Simulated scan of single mutants.
Amino acid sequence: MVTISLTIIFDAPYYKGVFEVRRNNLYSVAEINLGTSEPKLPLIHQLILDNWAKIDFFTKKSESRKEKVKINPKRLQRLARKETKRGVGTIAQMALKEQMSERKKEKKSKNSPYNELMKKKIFSIKQEKKKNKHNGH
């Protein structure tokens, strides 16, 4: 069973959409920027249709959940209203933080050799300047 939810939040000055996908015992979350103006339903619909494959989801295993029992429609409406007031769940926030920290580590490890090379290059240029400065003495 797959459940997908989209929560739109205003994180000044941008509107952001948080996709949460639950598949069996996997939990995936992605955040997209929707712009500065309030997104309309056709824009969101078109975004999902055109860019669903391009959305970068962060996936992690979630704890096993109980089988869902058929819920009364009125209770479902109350739960949906409650979810909209609450905003993005803490699970989504923690997963997005974890994704951001992993990306940061990847970027740092990717750029580390380049940064080291640049430091050595700058150091050698400074040493050369020092030697040229004391050339006649």
Rank of each mutant, 00 (worst) to 15 (best):
M1L: 10
I4E: 02
I4L: 05
S5V: 00
S5R: 06
L6W: 03
T7F: 09
D11V: 09
A12C: 08
Y14I: 04
K16I: 08
G17V: 00
G17Q: 03
V18D: 04
F19G: 03
R22D: 10
N25Q: 14
Y27T: 03
S28G: 13
V29N: 04
A30T: 00
I32V: 01
N33I: 01
S37N: 05
S37P: 03
E38T: 15
E38V: 14
L43A: 12
H45P: 09
D50R: 10
W52Y: 13
W52V: 13
A53L: 10
K54M: 01
K54S: 04
F57M: 03
K61M: 00
S62I: 05
E63T: 09
E63L: 08
K68Y: 15
K68W: 14
N72P: 01
P73K: 12
Q77G: 05
K82D: 07
K85I: 01
K85D: 03
K85Y: 06
R86A: 08
G89C: 04
I91G: 04
L96C: 00
Q99H: 06
S101P: 05
R103M: 02
R103L: 02
K105L: 01
E106T: 03
K108Q: 15
K108L: 13
S109H: 06
N111F: 10
N111M: 09
S112N: 12
S112M: 15
E116L: 11
L117D: 12
M118E: 09
K121P: 01
K121A: 09
S124C: 15
Q127T: 02
Q127H: 04
K129T: 08
K131C: 13
N132A: 11
G136K: 11
H137E: 10
